[in-house]
Write a protein that binds this DNA or RNA. Structure first.
Length: 284
DNA sequence: AATCCCGCCAACCGCATGGCA
DNA sequence: GTGCCATGCGGTTGGCGGGAT
């Protein structure tokens, strides 16, 4: 074997052969995913555990979708990247069959270029003549990304979306005016993080609102070609997250099986549950 | 036909994080 | 509280293939 393809300790590196793929597949079928340290000896592979994990996750795992990204996938990547930045794993989680590596590669090779082109166009259009180029680029790129943290909902989590203030049961509540105490009660944290400051809550609300506004933009776009976009929106729905108690829709915040209508600053907007909620996890 | 160039993507590397003793 | 280990994530690299010259 080529010495270049060996790492320290004689571990093989580089492209995987069909034989190696087969060994890895058989091993994971037999023992299941996880315990990656044990995979190479079990499979009889001269690879490091990380390499095995990566190969499985990015290539061998069932239901991996290969080939061109669809228009709706690209659209979703754009929107998610706008909100989350380079959180490829999170973005990929919204695209069934796509891996973080796929999304990252696609962004770096296709979308990044497209974005920079669009930025140039924007700068031209706006005719900002008194600014230096550096300032223009800086102003365009200054996007505050609120990094989400995984939080676990308590059993009452859907109450938050239904707009029921726990202190004043059945009192409608606007999503943008949730009190800190509500969040403390309704959102329990697995990571033992406490929502102690107003600032933290504000940031989270800003993040939520940005998602909601993005969704609203989508809806405005959809008006142009409603039927077509409706189809797209359906495709974008990965899964639905119905209310656990199956309660009836609230006056102000209307829920359906796959989306929730919330009111922010007197404007109603619809948001897909699955954009926010992933198996009871909520990303702030 | 040979060589060069460039884009794409699989894979690697280093760091961060979480769990556990 | 600390250190170790396993795992996950994002940035980067390098090889391959196809188009251009």
């Amino acid at each position: 074997m080529d010495d270049k393809r060996r790492g320290y300790g004689g571990v093989r590196k580089g492209s995987w052969t069909d034989e190696e793929d087969l060994l890895l597949k058989q091993c994971i079928q037999k023992y299941g995913e996880g315990k990656w340290r044990q995979v190479p000896p079990r499979a009889g592979l001269n690879r490091c555990s990380k390499s095995c994990r990566l190969r499985w996750l990015n290539y061998l795992r069932p239901n991996i979708k290969r080939g061109q990204f669809a228009a709706d996938e690209i659209d979703l990547i754009f929107k998610m990247h706008k909100l989350l930045g380079n959180r490829w794993a999170l973005i990929a989680g919204r695209l069934p069959g796509r891996t973080a590596n796929d999304v990252k590669n696609y962004w770096n090779t296709h979308l990044n270029k497209k974005l920079s082109c669009e930025r140039t166009v924007i700068v031209d259009d706006e005719e900002i003549k008194d600014m230096s180029n550096d300032n223009i680029i800086h102003s365009q790129m200054e996007i505050k990304v609120i990094k989400p943290q995984p939080l676990n909902f308590s059993k009452n989590y859907n109450k938050w979306f239904r707009g029921i203030d726990h202190d004043h049961d059945d009192t409608p509540m606007k999503a943008s005016t949730i009190q800190q105490s509500d969040t403390e009660m309704l959102i329990s944290t697995d990571q033992k993080t406490t929502l102690s400051s107003e600032t933290k809550l504000d940031e989270r609300l800003v993040w939520l609102e940005s998602i909601l506004l993005a969704e609203r933009e989508v809806e405005e776009d959809q008006e142009d070609d409603h039927e077509k976009e409706e189809k797209k929106a359906d495709q974008m729905m990965i899964s639905s997250c119905p209310l656990s108690d199956g309660s009836s829709p609230h006056d102000e915040i209307i829920t359906t099986s796959s989306s929730v209508n919330v009111q922010i600053d007197d404007a109603e907007t619809k948001i897909d549950w699955d954009l926010l909620v992933d198996e009871n996890f909520y990303f702030w």
